[in-house]
Design a binder for these strands. Structure first.
Length: 462
RNA sequence: GGCCCCAUCGUCUAGCGGUAAGGAUCCCAGGUUUUCAUCCUGGUUACAGGAGUUCGAAUCUCCUUGGGGUCACCA
């Protein structure tokens, strides 16, 4: 049985680093037919966990992740934590520390002055006397005084840390509210988590949590610490380069399968394979193949994946997705032709939408840079002649448009560029884009004629 | 600074003592395409440095260097 969890603190939104660890945990649970739980780490009561919850749920829903059962809120489990603190206290494994904040600060300053690592000196560890007046005590755990704390990390291998590095840390604040490392250990144990997959930044918390596990006789889960995602410069990811709300990827025209595929390959691999469907990820994922080193966020690769998934999406799906980008082709009988002509030219849904608009909306201006080349020389005469032919023949399908174009070139004894370039600019306003026959078919004879006429008028006005 | 982690093309990575160090992305060139894109073909670019161990090291050990994480009554 595998039970994994995702345990975000409510900081507002879910970013890709969080989504990746959530994905890894989710995949591992799914692969093993296990359970994936969600726990909100909201012991800091000043943060609004409702908003965070909604943001996470939105993101989960968009990418298709879901958790089992109800979400756990640590803020609702204080009674439970208190019972374990009491137990530790009565068993003599934890103790009240009456040191004031001022005293603690003083101690730290002295230690720093001596170039020592600031750490609690254990002065109340075996305190038997009368506690000082007016100090609301914190509860500290009795950490081992010597030896070392070791565990086998699922990705890093054996980790050894000297016990002297772990001091008698606070497990309950003076108000009685338990601290992070304590509740994480309690919850992971009580929730039956078998695999803790989390960011590298938690590596140093692990020995502390192990102290709790040991004090309470809980069995250790497997820990897998995933290295961080850096930005393209190899520095810490910031909002500017990817650490944005996952939902912004949706707004920016990314498909969830592209984002998931991108993330799963960041730090994890299965040989040379690059493209993974969610089903494949589930069947192939194993934390033991997670890379030890940090990886860098690479937008080019994400865009490439996104383009791949756009190209391979069904028309129905794209039509649905495009609705968020102000394009509704659901009632357009030529929708499939429109998508065929555009989807290979788009890296994002935004680009796809603009490609479509480029065809569907008559140009309001012509690209300055190509006017001279496309509209110079005999362009005007050729376009007029083409319009006449068009009206005479009135092609009705792509093949007919194609033939008409070919015949026109042959009969007028001109190179294709002579008609192709001005026609393209007349229709789209620019030199690049879908095939002319496709565009003309999509627009229909009359619209094509209209756009050509506009172009002719424009040329005359030059 | 102490402690811990990490180190293969610019980037994502394969490699797990014997390989011409492979793939993907990016970039470049060619082909297909009436343009652009797609697609296809080809190309440039990497084992951070130094000592060991070994017949043989990208792979094992150590050191150096360089990155990162962490040192709270935050999570």
């Amino acid at each position: 049985m595998v039970v994994t969890r995702f345990a975000p603190s409510p900081t507002g939104y879910l970013h890709i680093g969080g989504l990746r660890t959530a994905l890894f945990s989710w995949l591992w649970a799914k692969k093993n037919g296990g359970t994936f739980l969600l726990r909100i780490e909201d012991t800091d009561l000043s943060r609004n966990s409702d908003d965070a919850m909604r943001a996470i749920l939105n993101a989960f829903e968009w990418v298709g992740l879901s958790y089992d059962g109800d979400a756990f809120y640590q803020s609702k489990r204080f009674e439970l934590y208190k019972s374990y603190i009491d137990r530790l206290l009565s068993e003599g494994k934890a103790y009240r520390c009456y040191m004031s904040k001022e005293e603690l600060d003083e101690l730290r300053e002295e230690q720093m002055a001596r170039k020592e690592r600031p750490r609690y000196d254990g002065r109340y560890r075996d305190f038997k006397g009368t506690p000082p007046e007016g100090v609301e005590p914190v509860i500290r755990i009795k950490a081992p005084l010597d030896g070392e704390i070791r565990f086998v990390d699922g990705v890093k291998g054996e980790i050894v840390i000297a016990s002297s590095e772990v001091d008698d840390f606070v497990i309950a604040r003076s108000g009685g509210v338990p601290t992070y490392n304590f509740v994480v250990a309690i919850d992971d144990a009580l929730m039956g988590i078998t695999d803790v997959i989390r960011g590298d930044d938690h590596l140093y918390n692990t020995p502390k949590q192990i102290v709790i596990y040991n004090a309470l006789g809980f069995e250790l889960p497997r820990f897998s610490h995933v290295a961080m995602i850096n930005n393209e410069e190899g520095k810490k990811l910031s909002k500017r380069d990817g650490a944005t709300d996952v939902m912004e990827y949706k707004t920016n025209g990314f498909l969830p399968e592209a984002l998931l595929n991108f993330l799963v390959r960041l730090g994890w691999s299965n040989g040379d394979q690059e493209i993974f469907s969610v089903e494949e990820m589930i069947s192939l994922f194993d934390p033991k193949n997670i890379n030890k080193s940090a990886s860098s966020y690479n937008l080019d690769k994400l865009l490439w994946l996104n383009a791949h998934y756009i190209k391979n999406s069904s028309d129905e799906k794209l039509i649905e997705l495009l609705k968020d980008f102000e394009i509704d082709l659901s009632a357009d009988e030529k929708s499939s032709d429109i998508l065929k002509a555009t989807k290979e030219r788009a890296k994002t849904l935004i680009e796809l939408a603009s490609q479509i608009n480029l065809i569907l909306q008559a140009p309001t201006s012509y690209n300055q840079k190509v006017i001279k080349k496309a509209f110079g020389g005999e362009a005007k005469e050729i376009l007029s002649r083409f319009n006449v032919t068009l009206q005479a023949q009135k092609p009705e399908n792509i093949e007919q448009f194609h033939e008409l174009l070919q015949d026109f070139v042959a009969q007028n004894n001109i190179g294709f560029g002579k008609i192709g370039q001005p026609l393209r600019v007349a229709l789209l306003g620019d030199m690049a884009g879908a095939g002319l026959d496709e565009i003309m078919y999509i627009l229909g004879v009359d619209e094509v004629t209209k756009r050509i006429q506009s172009a002719i008028n424009f040329i005359e006005s030059l």
